[in-house]
Design a protein around this nucleic acid. Structure first.
Ligand SMILES: [Zn+2]
Ligand SMILES: [Zn+2]
Ligand SMILES: [Zn+2]
Ligand SMILES: [Zn+2]
Lengths: 175, 175
DNA sequence: CGTGCATTTGATATACTATAACAATAAGAG
DNA sequence: CTCTTATTGTTATAGTATATCAAATGCACG
């Protein structure tokens, strides 16, 4: 399997429109497949074990570009036939978050698949308050501004959590 | 009462050191008094009612520059003699957050007094992972970067939640 | 005043989010 | 195969937040 097939599909990488690819119509099955393939690669490289439960939770997180709560995942797991309990899903989520495959959105107590797990980073997110879809971004200028400000105030940064709430163009167009 | 006495005391406004004033030794009673006075002014101006419970919760939030949880506030209220229940403190906190007098830190599920309630804004915070103290800041360059990025992605921003975790200079000095 | 309406608070119950602790099982190393 | 460690199962509980309705309070108006 070629490395290029392990990254997200072209539909999500296109930059010729302002509208983020995740908010445009696209072949979402390809997103899921790519996320799972990238997860396999990351775990293999780092000696992590992507067990069936972890893989399944990741797949469930990727069912949409909307954040999903732990107990929603729990229901979905139970629908699979497993009689899963909370620690099962939280442990899987802990693993996925630590592996950089999933991000937790603190303002929503919910989880969303990482769009670029092969390049470790911390989250910056745009959340549409109407349709709840989430766009992950990474802005060098935001990072530089934050780093500079933190350094000026005597802080050594270890983690960042940037969550912006707003309204996406689709929802604005729909009044 | 003059307006200048309603803003935070000079100790918190000094800019000649990199260390934020809130992290340096200072007369914290003056912080509390100033915060309460500013709250009275804001509420009067906006036709909001700073009732005894709300005022007391604000005072309790300002007991330190560390974020405080709703149930800690609840205990403190109960120690006052009131037999407060969760909705009481959550309603007071809702009011204070909406009035711009208190900020909620989503990553900590905790609340901290706003350093500049007279100038409405959204939160940008540095949190020391060692001593848990919080410094609120407002960076024009961060805001510009975020606004520009959001606009590029087709988003209209309504709220921002920027929480940076790190280590303050005091804690770094103390190994 | 006194009446009526809106806001705030009291009180009970419950929903939602997350973890502790320990037992059972499965995976990997030698 | 056996030892060791990592993972999962299971039960219980901790921690955070809200829904709902009743009582009390504040305020506008006549
Ligand atoms: Zn990511
Ligand atoms: Zn939308
Ligand atoms: Zn503030
Ligand atoms: Zn510190």
């Amino acid at each position: 399997m070629m490395v290029s097939s392990l990254t997200l599909p072209d539909a999500l990488m296109t930059l010729d429109s302002n509208t983020p690819a995740a908010l445009r119509p696209h072949d979402h099955d390809a997103c899921i497949d790519a996320a799972l393939a990238a997860a396999e690669q990351t775990c293999k490289e780092q000696g992590l074990r992507l067990t069936p439960i972890r893989r399944r939770v990741l797949e469930l997180v990727w069912q949409s570009h909307r954040p999903v709560g732990a107990y929603e995942l729990l229901e979905a797991l139970s629908a699979d036939g497993r009689r899963a309990m909370p620690p099962t899903v939280y442990r899987a989520l802990d693993f996925l978050v630590n592996a950089g495959l999933v991000h937790r959105l603190a303002t929503l107590n919910a989880f969303v698949g990482c769009h670029d797990p092969l390049h470790p980073h911390q989250g910056q997110f745009l959340i549409c308050g109407d349709c709840r879809r989430v766009v992950e971004f990474h802005s060098g200028s935001v990072n530089r501004s934050l780093d500079r400000k933190a350094r000026n105030l005597g802080f050594e940064l270890t983690e960042q959590n940037v969550e912006l709430l707003g309204r996406c163009s689709d929802c604005r167009d729909a009044h």
